[in-house]
Amino acid sequence: MNTVSKEIIHTNSETVSTKSWPLVVRDLTVAYHRKPVVWDVELSIPEGKLVSIVGPNGAGKSTLLKAALDLIPRSSGEVLIYGEPYSKARKRVGYVPQRESVDWDFPVSALDVVAMGTYGQLGWFRRVNKRSKALAMQALDRVGLADYAHRQISQLSGGQQQRTFLARALVQDADIYFMDEPFAAVDAATERAIVDLLKELQQRGKTCLVVHHDLATVPEYFDWTVLLNMRVVASGPTEEVFNQENLHKTYGGKLTLLSQAAEELMRKR
């Protein structure tokens, strides 16, 4: 079943112009210190999907995102965003890095952080203006943090910090979003807020790629799934590819994790 869906996608990507595909990855290999982390990845993500990227620790999920975003050098392969290389498509791309990747003691307010989402559009030398701030305020309001706009960011809870990052992504007003574990260690309210936000983005025709850890919620939250373990084990509509066989291939010998996942899966369906 998996191979069938992959073939369909593959033929699509060749007949239809890549311009209509938010993300096409061909033959991508990334290596650290000559050790491949992402190997020969082929991916085509259709427009308007909420995509989960799942796989065990060290499977190369973050690396895949960063290589797609041109943040780390590729050993080989090509990444096309709406049919163009990253440097030409950057204004259509939004990025939500892992929460731990920044220093939350940095002297900025939540509003400052969200306003950073407009820096790309502002360009060099242009100062942050009223419009940036108004957009940032709107986005903060959208994620329920309007009252916290002027708080220094270390005074926010983990969930609030994550929502600040999402508000910043909203302000970027992108067409495709890359999110690195937005659900990691957040409270239930934040999880709900993120899911709502993702659905809203989807309704507006946006595509979101989300690195995700909680296998139990994959079928509920995401309509497209990429199973990754250095290579792409499967990629396709969640109901087609998110099954025991593929999970076993992805998580390999990690049986406890696998059986937990399987149980969860059975329970959900």
Binding site: K66, L69, D70, L71, R90, V93, Y95, P97, S101, V102, D103, F106, V108, V113, M116, Y119, G120, R168
Partner: peptide
């Protein structure tokens, strides 16, 4: 603050 976002 966020070198990766800046670079993207």
């Amino acid at each position: 603050f966020d070198s990766e976002l800046a670079t993207t």
